[in-house]
Write a protein that binds this DNA or RNA. Structure first.
Length: 424
RNA sequence: GUGGGCGUAGCUCAGUCGGUUAGAGCGCCAGGUUGUGGCCCUGGAGGUCGCGGGUUCGAUUCCCGUCGCUCACCCCA
């Protein structure tokens, strides 16, 4: 029998489970601060749920199979379609905006690499039913506060923010036809990794003149006002720019100005974003994006959900955990054992078990030796499990109704009545 | 799917210019007696040297293949 786990899948040993639990706890705590409530859906869904949204080509990237009932099913690669279905079933009767979040385990059949496995947990946090840009600022603020709650500062990460409609308008003003928009976005997205010549070439293929392409290469250097000066006079584009400016204003009002930056080269690969897009990045550039999201006003309807504006983000546990480890932000776990109860001889066993159980009833984390070993070995065992104190029951103390309590860190020892152990 | 790097004990790694029983540190287990841990000492368990084939008198070592891990590319929900 092969005892290794599947490639890209993780075993969570206790120390890793502690980190995972910490991540989930902080996520839930911050989501709660923003008034989001948690939901979940099935990890296994009909294959068609994803094909309908992303097309047939996605099938090769899914964990999928035919079940015994002949149904084509897939382990969920993302939460949005399930979310759309669940929101759709209830949206009509719910006050808007809807604020829901989830921490699904997601699966994809791809070659694993740094920060990207075949399985991960991803916080999904979305607002449905609100089109105003205050909600854009709200969702970005929530993402930023997630990382702040882990102890990361504006020195360590930044939210890169842009707007797809604004950049789309800019590209259109430079001669990109609607049908070439996707290719042009893809080219711009490569600016930080590919040579200017390469990007220029791709833009020209998308219908951009060489002169315009050269001009577009300067995009990442532009601030928002400068960029607005180059988008022409299309009213929708100008409005998108104004909208984005107000998003930044709101974030500034939240006091989060140090965490955000306009980044026109950010377009995200996702075709379905309709407005604000953003990503959270480690400033040192050691990791891939920690978090990404934006506004997707037409997606819910497109996947069969309600026709409501929506926006949200996803934040995976893999990159985040690597970052926390690299920055020394993984909290120390409390000792698994608080009290270790020691019997000097087997005669004290019944009394010891009574003490053990009474302490556990009081919520203490308690252990004791199973094997009847020497007192020295029992202390050694207590030390190994990190016990905060040991409670020694010997014939002498027990005859007086007492026990010796030893603080393991200091070695300080005192004889106390059994009753006081169980009441303080 | 493409390419690079790496596979020796639970962990981190030595080592063998091809040669007999493959080592260390840490960790683990048991002792160092009869009521006190951390340090120390002694002993022990634990490895098909990733797997398969080839060359060879002999392969953990050389060659080929394969699997796995890992990094990058592609892609990215």
């Amino acid at each position: 029998m092969d005892l290794t786990s599947l490639p890209g899948f993780r075993d969570f040993y206790p120390e890793q489970m502690a980190l995972r639990d910490h991540v989930f706890t902080v996520w839930r705590e911050v989501a709660g601060r923003y008034g989001f409530v948690e939901y979940d859906g099935p990890p296994l869904e009909p294959l068609d749920l994803y094909v309908r949204k992303s097309g047939e080509e996605i099938v090769g990237q899914l964990y999928r199979f035919t079940d015994q009932g002949g149904r084509e099913v897939a382990l969920r690669p993302e939460m949005t379609p399930s979310f759309a279905r669940m929101v759709g079933a209830r949206a009509g009767g719910m006050p808007k905006p809807i604020r829901w979040y989830s921490i699904p385990q997601l699966f994809r059949y791809e070659r694993p690499q740094k920060g990207r496995l075949r399985e991960h947990f991803q916080l999904n946090l979305d607002i449905v039913g609100e089109a105003g840009e205050l909600s854009d600022a709200e969702i970005i603020a929530a993402a930023i506060d997630m990382l702040r709650a882990f102890g990361l500062s504006s020195e360590e990460f930044v939210a890169r923010i842009s707007d797809r409609e604004l950049i789309g308008g800019l590209l259109a003003a430079h001669g990109v036809a609607p049908e070439a928009m996707g290719a042009a976005f893809a080219a711009l997205d490569k600016l930080d990794r590919e040579s200017p010549e390469w990007v220029c070439g791709r833009l020209e293929e998308a219908g951009v003149s060489e002169r315009s392409a050269r001009e577009l290469l300067g995009i990442p250097e532009l601030d928002l006002p400068a960029l607005l000066g180059r988008v022409g006079d299309d009213p929708a584009t100008l409005e998108a720019g104004e909208r984005l400016r107000r998003v930044f204003d709101h974030l500034e009002s939240f006091g989060l100005g140090a965490f955000v930056r306009f980044d026109p080269s950010l377009v995200r690969g996702l075709a379905y974003y309709t407005g604000t897009v953003f990503e959270l990045w480690d400033r040192r550039g050691e990791f891939r994006a920690i978090c990404g999201g934006g506004r997707y006003d037409r997606l819910l309807a497109a996947v069969g959900g309600p026709d409501l504006p929506a926006l949200g983000f996803g934040m995976g546990d893999v990159v985040l955990s690597e970052l926390l480890k690299a920055r020394g932000l993984v909290p120390e776990q409390p000792a698994a054992i608080q009290d270790f109860v020691i019997c000097v001889t087997d005669e004290q066993r019944p009394a010891a078990l009574g003490v053990v159980h009474a302490l556990r009833d009081r919520g203490r984390r308690v252990a004791y030796d199973f094997a009847g070993r020497s007192v020295g070995r029992q202390f050694k065992a207590a030390n190994q499990v990190g016990a905060e104190r040991t409670i020694v029951l010997g014939p002498d103390e027990l005859s007086r109704g007492e026990a010796v309590v030893r603080e393991m860190s200091t070695g300080e020892e005192k004889s106390v009545p059994l009753g006081s152990i169980l009441s303080d």
